[in-house]
């Protein structure tokens, strides 16, 4: 039991993610979390504005159930399966973040400098969350998939488009982390 409460090493977690993908394939589905964003648009009536959202979203209800499960899983993991220990980040990472003005680094999953209500209720804080979410939602649909659809499923299926997309993910991520975050914080 104690081992469940500690953070799980990569060589346990990675293969378990592959299990999630494999089980969804065995159920006749595919592992793709960003598709739900398009489904939400369709449910909200976006089909009136663009043909891209004119599809029978009921066929994708199963994926919304995966989302519901993911929310429950997140709740269960922090409520029943966590010992509240600080994350074992590289000390260099902690130092870099301290230099950018972040404190209590790794004491929770997300930095309070971005996700606390104190941060969110500033113009800058609100703009960060909206811009970040918008880029993820726009980019993932433009690229035709996200980390689950391209980086895990697409690469596992040896698809060139997914490799190009993952290279793109990294170019974008490196630009943000190395050049833009230091300007924001």
């Amino acid at each position: 039991m104690e081992i469940l409460l500690k953070p799980w090493p990569w060589y346990i977690s990675g293969p378990l993610i592959a299990v999630v993908m494999a089980v969804l394939i065995l159920f006749g589905k595919t592992f793709g979390m960003s598709s739900n964003l398009r489904t939400f648009c369709a449910i909200g009536g976006a089909g009136k504005y663009a043909d891209f959202f004119k599809f029978d979203w009921r066929a994708y209800r199963w994926n919304l159930l995966v989302v519901l499960g993911a929310v429950i899983g997140g709740f269960m993991a922090v409520t029943f399966l966590s010992d509240g220990s600080t994350m074992a980040l590289n000390p260099e990472t902690v130092k870099d973040l301290s230099a950018l003005g972040f404190s209590e680094v790794g004491e929770s999953l997300l930095p309070k400098e971005i996700y606390s209500w104190d941060a969110v209720f500033t113009i800058k804080g609100l703009a960060i969350l909206i811009v970040a979410g918008f880029l993820v939602g726009f980019g993932t649909r433009y690229a035709g998939g996200c980390t689950s659809g391209h980086a895990i499923t697409g690469l596992s299926n040896l698809q060139w488009p997914s490799l190009i997309a993952v290279v793109g993910f990294f170019i974008g991520g490196l630009i943000m982390t190395h050049f833009i975050l230091p300007l924001i914080f």
Binding site: M33, S34, N36, L37, V67, A70, V71, G73, G74, L110, P111, I114, I128, L129, V131, A132, G133, F134, L135, V136, G137, F138, G139, T140, R141, Y142, A143, G144, C146, T147, S148, H150, P161, S162, I164, A165, V166, V167, G168, F169, F170, I171, G172, G173, L174, I175, M176, T177, I180, L181
Partner: peptide, 24 residues
């Protein structure tokens, strides 16, 4: 794939979360 990927990557590194983790 490359343009969409870069846009996604910018958001991923800023939010620190991609679509799955957002719900979690």
């Amino acid at each position: 794939y490359i343009i969409g990927g870069i846009i996604f990557g910018l958001g991923w590194a800023l939010a620190g979360a991609c679509p799955g983790p957002m719900y979690i």
